[in-house]
Amino acid sequence: MTEARTQILANIRSALTGGEPRTPLRMNELKARIESSTPKAQPQFEDDLLRRFCQKHVAVHGTYERVAAQDLEGAVLRHIGAHQVDPQLYLGAGPLLDAVQWSAQVFTYFKSADQHTQVAVSEAFAAIAETGTVVLCSGASTPTSHNFLPEDHIVVVDSARIVRHQEDVWSLLRNRKGVAVRAVNLITGPSKTGDIEQTIQYGAHGPRRLHLLIVESA
């Protein structure tokens, strides 16, 4: 196996430079390019990030409600009530979500989702105005399975966490304290497929509905 590695790298070098060994100098140049990486060719758009974010989210078949932080439970109940789903919530974590005092009207679970999970409520690490995307990071209390197994995925978005471009998320991730995140999921609308007759059908393998609760920070 190390033989394969050696040979592939040697083939590449011989194709590129006629076989010269790579120098530490060149490796440092490449590292420097990564470390000093900057955004390129970004699309320009209006300044109202919240409005743009909502428009783009709706354009990909998402739904949302703008709510006050203290009304999060009410908003969750309104959504699951409208879709006649049992109030059994698989909960993620985040500053806004952690502050909710859940009433006896709901059952809450703090564990991985399974194939029977109906609803998960997550809080976005960030959101991207450019494309109407929510960003979710894996962690001790934010399991990735919540993003993909439930029928309904409800995501709390702090409007202050809506960034302009995708690259702004990378900056946030780079500045994030603690261990690097294992999984970063950029989610843009509910699950869908075009594999039958090239016609979009929602609810392929992931959530059928993606509902955002957008909390405007003071």
Binding site: V60, A140, T144, V181, V184, N185, G189, P190, G206
Partner: peptide
């Protein structure tokens, strides 16, 4: 013709000590 596909994910290794799954 999409601006973004529904799911764009970055996976960078096995579960970490702090992860509950993966």
């Amino acid at each position: 013709g999409q601006e973004m596909s529904a799911y764009t994910s970055l996976y960078s290794g096995p579960r970490q000590d702090t992860d509950s799954e993966g």
